[in-house]
Design a protein around this nucleic acid. Structure first.
Lengths: 355, 355
DNA sequence: ACCATTGATGCAAACGTTTTAATCAGGCTA
DNA sequence: TAGCCTGATTAAAACGTTTGCATCAATGGT
């Protein structure tokens, strides 16, 4: 048996085309690449070339093209992981913007590990990405190409544009709402340390609590373990974790009338734990989530939550990046802060009278 | 020897390295690329090169490398869209497998449009992908590189490996369950025509219904409109659509004791509609979903559903593709059929006695 | 001493483009 | 007739790699 040389779907190249037309490679390239010099060509020649290209089904080799010029129209996206709510929302916004403007992206998960992040950055630079969108990372050093950090930090001296949520407002809205309803003893779920958002959020919550004269009971403050924003597909899903931590809260035996969770998923898990323990939500305990994932409105009770404009955050990041790529001059780095909304539904109600 | 200070922004290339070491480009390349010819090199030289590469922070240009050799270690993934449950589950499995074996992927949404699909394929081929994973597509013609079709069809004469769910078993399990509970009048949500899975699933349901001697009432069979598997981020989310179609079922005035939805999302929406109309689930109506998304267990009542092993489907597709890439010989195309499970929870119960 | 052998490295072509600068054929000017 | 544009095309270098083959020095066998 002869070595199974594959059907050799050999692509048509400029050289083939040139030979076929009895023209030089240069001319063919000019006719097709839409370069400024295309005007110099005879109209007839150009049409001949275009016709032949269509006929022979010529497709330019992007690798070669990028190697020679500098454009790759490719950008790198680093996500913490591929999960249900959070990542999907952002990605959706990112994808729309990018593809609208002719860019493609490569995506890789960094799982909140600095080593993975660095490796991925290196690898993508090697593949010629023109810029980065970095989600939930801490960017240590400046990069050789423009970058936008989304829900993360970019080092003291700011190496990149940033898009972030107004965590102060989120905390203010929520604690205001709960305080108005008479809640004074509130339990919290914190995101785990690896999560960049988590720190900022907690700071904002503490400050807002002080303003409202609310004491934070450290025994009622639980820090989630798993990748905070989902890690949806591991054995211990985010819902499950919320459930267990909901139980833990009850086990402390301490009194609390409300829970402000780190995200909707853990909120929903905890809510279920409370219900399974015979408590009524919001009669006995009010629950507030974070994100406003699609299903939030369809649970029972429907979930009161802080809505992050995920899709818009994705779009904004892309726009920022592409604008910077377009303008060859580098202006000062920007910070775009997007506002959250508090979506009040049925999982919050008046605080239960003291027992 | 003067300390080689390199120009900023510019990446270190083999040439730079060679100049710095006073060696030829070829030698440096051999020392670093792990080529078979590396053995011929003097051990000392090789170490010198490696040391310098580390020092100067050399990173190979993947574009150039790919242009010369044929390997790009890049594969193209086409998804219907970026959505919560379905796509995220598959992608998660795909990503793990691919990155474990050193491959990267580019992703683009085809939105169930043939034109978008073709364009994306072309573009990715131009970028040198070595293979494709095509999700929920109908593959018309053979491709010049290996492909795996996941939950789709690959033309009559089979142009690709396929991974699919055993829809017959899914239908059988579900109708068996409902039939056992005494349900005889069952409503259905069908996926929209653009969805490749939908057709197959419906065929299987019809056959299983016949086997169980169940009549399908066309008035109680509603076809979803939106991108069937989510289109989560459009104004009319999947939940909302399920809700509206749940209402529609009630508006027909026809009697039914169970609903078999097209996916969990629409099932949850419909369930809520029934509840809002004062019906009890499962007391008055039983509801069965499809997919087993993470939140399914956390709704009230928790959702009985057909579990698709999404992650495993993703993994299997990747494995199939990479195996085919590794073995240069082309064996016959394979079809891998994965088995669903019926996860019985609290949204199904005995059929209500006839009114 | 001589040639063959080995071991280590360099030359140069190739991958498919883009682009700068050069060539070439006419027609026009003087 | 020579010199010059002008308009259309092409030759060739470059982008950063990999790799078949050539080269070269040192070694070893006879």
């Amino acid at each position: 048996m002869p070595p199974a040389t594959l059907p050799k779907g050999k692509r048509v190249t400029l050289k083939d085309l040139a030979a076929h037309l009895d023209l030089s490679i240069a001319t063919v390239s000019r006719a097709l690449s839409g370069s400024p010099q295309a005007d110099a060509l005879a109209v007839e020649t150009r049409q001949r070339v275009e016709e032949a290209a269509r006929q022979l089904n010529y497709r330019p080799n992007a690798l070669a093209r990028s190697l020679q010029g500098k454009r790759t129209f490719s950008i790198g996206v680093l996500v913490p992981e591929i999960s249900e709510g959070y990542t999907a929302g952002l990605m959706s916004g990112i994808e729309v913007q990018l593809s609208e403007r002719g860019y493609r992206y490569q995506m890789v998960s960094h799982h909140s590990k600095a080593a993975l992040l660095d490796e991925a950055l290196d690898m993508m630079l090697g593949r010629g990405v023109e810029g980065f969108i970095l989600i939930a990372v801490t960017l240590q050093h400046a990069l050789p190409v423009p970058a936008v950090v989304l829900s993360g930090t970019a080092g003291d001296d700011e190496h990149a544009d940033r898009v972030m949520l107004d965590h102060d407002r989120a905390a203010e809205l929520t604690l205001d709402h709960l305080h108005d309803l008479g809640h004074r003893r509130i339990a919290f779920f914190r995101g785990h340390e690896g999560n960049v958002d988590a720190g900022e959020r907690w700071r904002a919550i503490c400050e807002a609590a002080t303003r409202h004269d609310l004491a934070i009971d450290s025994e009622l403050t639980l820090t989630l373990r798993g990748a905070a924003y989902g890690e949806t597909f591991t054995a211990e899903g985010g819902y499950r974790e919320g459930y267990r931590y909901g139980q833990k809260l009850l086990e402390t035996g301490r009194r609390f009338t409300a829970l402000f969770a780190f995200n909707d998923i853990s909120a929903i898990g905890a809510m279920r734990a409370f219900q399974d323990a015979g408590l009524d939500v919001p009669g006995d305990v009010s629950v507030v989530g974070f994100d406003d994932i699609q299903s939030a409105a369809y649970h029972r009770p429907s979930l009161t939550t802080v809505r992050q404009p995920l899709r818009r955050m994705g779009e904004t990041s892309s726009r920022l990046l592409l604008d910077r790529l377009a303008a060859t001059q580098h202006g000062a780095f920007q910070q775009v802060v997007l506002e959250p909304d508090l979506v009040v539904r049925d999982s919050t109600g008046p605080a239960k009278a003291s027992t």
